[in-house]
Amino acid sequence: MDCVETRMSDPIIVAEDVHKWFGNFHVLRGVHLTVSRGEVLVICGPSGSGKSTFIRIINRLEEHQRGRIAVDGIELTNDLRNIEAIRREIGMVFQQFNLFPHLTVFENITLAPIWARKVKRSDAEKQALELLERVGIPEQAQKYPGQLSGGQQQRVAIARALAMQPKIMLFDEPTSALDPEMIKEVLDVMGELAASGMTMIVITHEMGFAREVADRIAFFDEGRIVEAAAPVDFFTAPEHERTKLFLSQILHH
């Protein structure tokens, strides 16, 4: 429950005793977590357990009220420079894609590099093409998000996040808004990303993906990390009752 031990040495995200309240509701009740450089961490747990809030706090989309989080040595505080720096280091992919509907795919990808990282337009465009190749949809560059399928939109969202050249990628249930036949194309892109050595935190219920790609799986319940272990141990020998219950519910139906 407390300090989860890490297998690799070099920590990139360190969270200590993180608390968060929404009004009177205590969402996060002391989360301790260390993620190493290059690690792929899958987070699972019942809805309302606070897992989504936690990764939004890592990106400072929400503020934590107690405890400490440091990302690549930068502490998350009210310091404007730190917030900007952290957002440049972290890419995020949302459940509902959140592509900008008034911009083309290409403009979606180049917007932030040009304006927030002040990259030259030509460089940003070159990079955008490479990224679209990488996620497998170079031919869709001039379309608008509304003209793409869900799977394609999510791959564009991944490319958009990668365009900021982040060190860490956060995925908030990236496949749960997708039709079943599109899930695989997104998971494949994520698998390749993991193989390239990217540090990733993925909230997902795709246990197949977790088994194959994750270095570690963390189980969230009632605002805490109940259990965190390598996939083999997590699936074969879960320690806690709640983990067992959750696994039986999610695997047997």
């Binding site: 200590e16 040595g73 310091d79 404007l80």
Partner: peptide
Amino acid sequence: PAPQTVIPLWR
């Protein structure tokens, strides 16, 4: 994490 540093006011 590094010990909490004082944030300059303008940031």
